[in-house]
Structures are given as structure tokens and as C-alpha cells.
Design a protein around this nucleic acid. Structure first.
Length: 572
RNA sequence: GCCCCCGUAGCUCAACGGAUAGAGUACAAGCCUCCGGAGCUUGGGGUACAGGUUCGAUUCCUGUCGGGGGCGCCA
């Protein structure tokens, strides 16, 4: 979504990096000066966090990338760059922060931070506290993320639940990266589904007032329809068929739509997901608006008549066939109001629009992107993320679901059974494009097998230790940290320092998954440290420095969990 | 028939095109005179198949095989 082209990557990296990486990149760039680089385009250089701790805090592939064009062995190129780098660094402000610049086969240049730089990280985290990890990368660019957008024809399902968890976390991440994010729910309060809803309520009402007929199969079958029908009758004081006949059909679907929307809003709030904007198809995509937009598209030559219908020439923009926007009976297909809605999004000034859809809508992407282009916007300004389904497992067996029969697992059932924290965490535990197995038993377990408890436990444990220390008059150190040199201490500090970088990765991938993975890793880092070293001991100086370290850990765990929408309990 | 997602350890999953492919779980053996044992340590095992792109492929491209989902003048 950030529009990377590999040729631009070098420059963009400089723009997106944290201060330290920025400085390193500049040093690397400077160290290339004496190399003959004019005869070929600059390849993309990365400065990444190596997986293996043996390779330092940062690793740069510059020598590997330049080896080909320079027609030299990567290690030879690396050697020169390394020597230049050492001069660069010892001459500047990086001297205090970089302990070692190492060259390792096949040609990576590895940077090791000094203990002072790592100690500074801890201090920085505690200074920035609940803001640690926030960045200005997004430059206050306006982004809209539209998700869930369930038809108000029934309670929310697990599919919606996963979209809600993913969308909300993603919105938080983009917010932390410095974008101005608007979370939006689009209400399809018109069309077939809504008509069927109205009809379903009316038909159930007919049953209740004593009429005998068979409830149509293509109506909504859920029990909630019966409850709503009963409530509707009571509200309007209708007791018989005659009374029912006096009520206009639209009253049924208006009532149903409103009631179900309230249910949906309430369930989402209970799930911790709050939308900034609720848009209604009936308001945005009125017949006037649709005709206006279709008129514009016709002017541009993107529409044509055939077989009595009006077609959108979506093949012009890469779709595999043209699409009907207005049927031969004069009614619109769903595409027509959707085109209007997306124009509306861009007209409201969003530079980037993100939609989260279920896998059943993936075939719809090319025509909508085509429509966006036909309207005159760049197709990259609309990103559609397909969130794969979650299958709920109980006792190792999948629970089936079918909206049509009204027998499906609802968001509410999952939430009530495992709690909001476990539910949200579990929905984020896989890449959003991968199908998810949601094990109800595991999510409920209060053991380390359950990853959400594992992470929350680390947070609670830290708070407990901090309390104990405070009761002995020991506080986290406010001085420069100078005594943290044990492997577990340095490892934990390294993990802490990666938090901002992880958020960038999530933003780049448009997927909160990496943050979940990171929090589990951070919790492990803490537990390993805690198991090896005593925090509160006779040595008060060391104790207070270790308290500072775990306090920083507490902050990062809390910030990360907050972004995911999971609580960080002080006690469990 | 066409489109999308997925094939990695017994199982569930990781790995911006990079270094010895990592975790959890299961199984086995250990660790509490001590800050929360809801924790930690140690062990073995794996990239579906065939090509291609290049210094380098689990990753990108093509094809084959397998699993899941989707295709409408429905939404």
C-alpha cells in the first residue's frame, strides 16, 4: 500500500526508518562514496533485524547487492565497506552506540549495539511510556478502513468477529504509525436481503397471530426473527391478521433493520470495537446519486447498453468481463451503489481506502477496482483485504455453520464462552489471509499452552515484582543503566527495541499478525530473564536497574496488547 | 471450466529474496531454602513434485499433484 517500487526502496527506507537506523543508513551511504557506482542503477539495500541474535541488532545486505554489478566477491566488497564504515562511525555520533561492525559470510555487514545504547533504549521506553512505539511515518495521511459492514439481517457471525478483530487492530496499528485513521461500517439497509428480512418478520408475525401457512424456505430462519416479530406485534398492538394487513411492508424491514443494527452495534462495543462512522446505503447511494455517477461514467465512455441492460466496461480496467450496473428490469445491481459509495469515500478526502471482506467476495475485487479507476482514481488507493474464515473447533471437531438455516456460531457465543481477550487474540493469531482454526477449549484454558494467558501472565508477573520491590522501598532506576550485561538482559532489551520496527512491519504487510508473534516472543524473553536472574536482591543498584528493565517490558507488553484490543491485567 | 487462498517437524503454525529453515504442542529427562512453577532448561526430527529467474529460492515465475473457498442481469 505504500507503493514501493524496488528502485525507490533505497530512498524510502531512509524516510521510514527510526533515528538510529536512519543514522546507520546515512553512514552506509557515505561509506560507499569511494566505490565506482556510477555505471549501474543503485540496487535496493535493506537494513534488517536478523533472526539470529549472533548477527547483531542490524544486518545490511549492501555488499551482497553490489557484488554482482561490481563483479567482485561479496566478501571483498564488504571488507571495503566495513573499513569505511568503521571510520564513518568512529568520527560521528554513532560512536557511543555501535559497539562492533562485523562482516560475516556470505557478505552481511552486522551492527552490534553497545550496552550503553541498549540501556538508553530502556530509559527511552520508560520516558515515552504509553507512547513508546508511536511514529510519524504516516505523515497524518487520511486512511479509511471499512470492515465488518454486515448486512443488518441477523446477529454477527464468527466471520464478522475475525474481521472485527483484524480491522480494529489494523486501524490501531496505522494510528500508531501516524496515519489519521477512520473506522467505518457500511450499512446495506436496502436491497434484496433487507426485503427478505422484512418479509421474514411479517411472515413470522402472521404465524403468531394464528394464520396457518408454511414459512418460506428462503426467508431468514433464525429464532431471533420470531422474537422480533413478537416484539413488533406488541409494539404496534396488533393481534390479528386484519391489523397486520394495515401495516405497510416497509415498516417491517425498517423495524428489523433498526433493531438488528442496534444488536450489531452492541455486540461490537462489547467486543471492544468502536466505529467512528456508520454510513448508510440509503443515504449515500440514493437514486439521484447513482444516476449522477452513471451519467459521469457514460460520458467517459465506460458504460454501454446491451440486451436492455446497462453495462460497465470493467474489462477496460482489467476485469475479466464487463458487469451489469442496471438490470433490464430497471433496478440496479449491487455494483451501482458500491461505485457511488467508493466515490463518496474519496470525495471525503481519504488518500487510502482499505476494505476488509470475506473470501466469498474476492471475485468482486476486480470490478470494484475497475470502477475506482473509471472514476479517475488510482487503483492502488483502494486496497481490499480478504480475511479468510475462522473455523470454530470443539473437542477437535469443527462446528458447522450456515447463515441460511440460522444455525451458525455467533460472535456473541464465542465472546461469552472464551471472553473478549482470548477471542480477539485468537482471531489475530494467523495471517489474515490464512484460514484460522479456533480451538474453544484451548482459548479457555488458563495454562501456558494458551498463548494469550502466556503473554498476559508475563505482564501480571512484572507488576507483582514491581509491587514487591516498592514495598521494600526499591524503585526502577532513573540513572543511566550500566550493569545490565547478562545475555538474558541484553536479549530482552533487544526485543524491546524492536517494538517500533514490528509495528512498521505490520503496517507494511497490512496485517497485525506479526505483533502477536512478537508479543509471544517478548514474553518468552522476559520469562527466560526472570528465571535466570533475581530482580530484587541485596544489590540495590543492580536491583533498580533490573526493575527498570522489567518496567520497560511491562510498558511494551501493555502497549502491544492495547493495540490488539486485549487487556493487560495486573493480577490474574 | 475460470478465479482466490493454502501445501514446511507427528499436529497447529513462523521465516522484508539471505546466514545453521524457527516456535508451540506432543513425547522423554531435569529445575522451586528464592521476586507468581500459569514459568524455565535439555533432546530428535521438516520445505508436496519438476523446471526457470540469480551470487543466493520456503519465499518470485511456469507447470503437475493435493486440500479449502468462490463463480449469476444475487448481495
Amino acid at each position: 500500500m505504500f507503493g514501493f517500487e524496488s528502485s525507490q526502496l533505497f530512498l524510502i527506507l531512509l524516510f521510514m526508518l527510526s533515528d538510529l537506523k536512519n543514522q546507520l543508513m546515512t553512514a552506509i551511504e557515505n561509506s560507499l562514496r569511494q566505490l565506482p557506482l556510477n555505471s549501474f542503477p543503485m540496487p535496493a539495500i535493506t537494513l534488517e533485524i536478523p533472526e539470529n541474535k549472533m548477527h547483531g541488532e542490524f544486518a545490511c545486505n549492501v555488499a551482497l547487492r553490489l557484488a554482482g554489478p561490481l563483479k567482485q566477491n561479496p566478501m571483498e566488497v564488504g571488507k571495503k565497506i566495513q573499513q569505511n564504515l568503521q571510520k564513518e562511525i568512529s568520527a560521528g555520533s554513532l560512536q557511543q552506540k555501535i559497539q562492533l561492525v562485523d562482516l560475516k559470510p556470505p557478505g552481511f555487514i552486522n551492527f552490534f549495539l553497545s550496552a550503553a545504547a541498549l540501556g538508553e533504549t530502556v530509559t527511552q521506553i520508560r520516558r515515552e511510556a504509553e507512547r513508546y512505539g508511536r511514529q510519524r511515518f504516516g505523515n497524518a495521511k487520511k486512511i479509511q478502513i471499512e470492515f465488518v459492514s454486515a448486512n443488518p439481517t441477523g446477529p454477527l457471525s464468527v466471520a464478522h468477529a475475525r474481521q472485527a478483530a483484524v480491522g480494529d487492530a489494523l486501524a490501531n496499528i496505522l494510528d500508531w504509525l501516524g496515519f489519521r485513521v477512520t473506522k467505518e461500517f457500511y450499512v446495506n439497509d436496502e436491497g434484496n436481503q433487507i426485503n427478505i428480512l422484512g418479509r421474514s418478520i411479517r411472515d413470522r408475525a402472521r404465524e403468531i397471530v394464528g394464520e396457518s401457512f408454511s414459512f418460506p424456505e428462503d426467508n431468514y430462519q433464525g429464532e431471533y426473527i420470531k422474537d422480533m416479530a413478537g416484539d413488533f406485534l406488541a409494539r404496534h398492538e396488533v393481534r390479528d391478521r386484519a391489523g397486520l394487513d394495515r401495516i405497510a411492508p416497509e415498516f417491517f424491514f425498517q423495524y428489523g433493520c433498526e433493531e438488528l443494527l442496534n444488536v450489531i452495534k452492541q455486540e461490537l462495543e462489547n467486543f471492544g470495537v468502536h466505529f467512528d462512522v456508520w454510513s448508510f446505503q440509503s443515504k449515500i447511494a440514493t437514486a439521484d446519486h447513482i444516476e449522477k455517477v452513471l451519467g459521469d461514467l457514460r460520458q467517459k465512455g465506460s458504460l454501454y447498453d446491451q440486451d436492455g441492460a446497462l453495462w460497465f466496461r470493467s474489462t477496460q480496467f482489467g476485469d475479466d468481463k464487463d458487469r451489469v450496473v442496471k438490470k433490464s428490469d430497471g433496478t440496479y445491481t449491487y455494483l451501482a451503489p458500491d461505485i457511488v459509495y467508493h466515490q463518496n469515500k474519496f470525495e471525503r478526502g481519504f488518500e487510502q481506502v482499505i476494505n476488509l471482506w470475506g473470501p466469498d467476495h474476492h471475485g468482486y475485487i476486480p470490478r470494484l477496482k475497475a470502477a475506482v479507476q473509471a472514476l479517475g482514481y488510482h487503483s492502488k488507493n483502494l486496497v481490499v483485504l480478504i480475511v479468510q474464515l475462522a473455523t470454530i473447533f470443539r473437542d477437535g471437531k469443527p462446528l458447522s455453520m450456515s447463515t441460511r438455516r440460522g444455525q451458525y456460531i455467533s460472535l456473541r457465543e464465542v465472546m461469552e464462552e472464551v471472553g473478549v481477550d482470548a477471542a480477539r487474540f485468537f482471531f489475530l493469531m494467523r495471517h489474515l489471509k490464512a484460514p484460522l482454526e479456533f480451538d474453544l477449549e484451548l482459548a479457555k484454558k488458563q495454562t501456558p499452552e494458551n498463548p494469550v494467558y502466556y503473554v498476559q501472565y508475563a505482564h501480571a508477573r512484572i507488576n507483582s515484582v514491581l509491587q514487591l520491590a516498592a514495598s521494600q522501598g526499591l524503585q526502577p532506576s532513573r540513572e543511566d543503566l550500566q550493569h545490565l550485561s547478562q545475555p538474558e538482559e541484553l536479549n530482552l532489551t533487544r526485543e524491546l527495541a524492536q517494538f517500533p520496527e514490528i509495528l512498521l512491519t505490520c503496517g507494511h504487510q497490512l496485517d497485525p499478525y506479526s505483533l502477536v508473534d512478537y508479543l509471544e516472543r517478548l514474553a518468552t524473553g522476559f520469562h527466560k530473564f526472570y528465571d535466570t536472574h533475581r530482580v530484587v536482591s541485596e544489590d540495590r543498584t543492580l536491583s533498580s536497574e533490573r526493575l527498570a528493565l522489567i518496567d520497560a517490558t511491562r510498558i511494551v507488553l501493555a502497549n502491544g496488547l492495547k493495540i490488539l484490543g486485549v487487556s493487560a491485567p495486573v493480577r490474574m
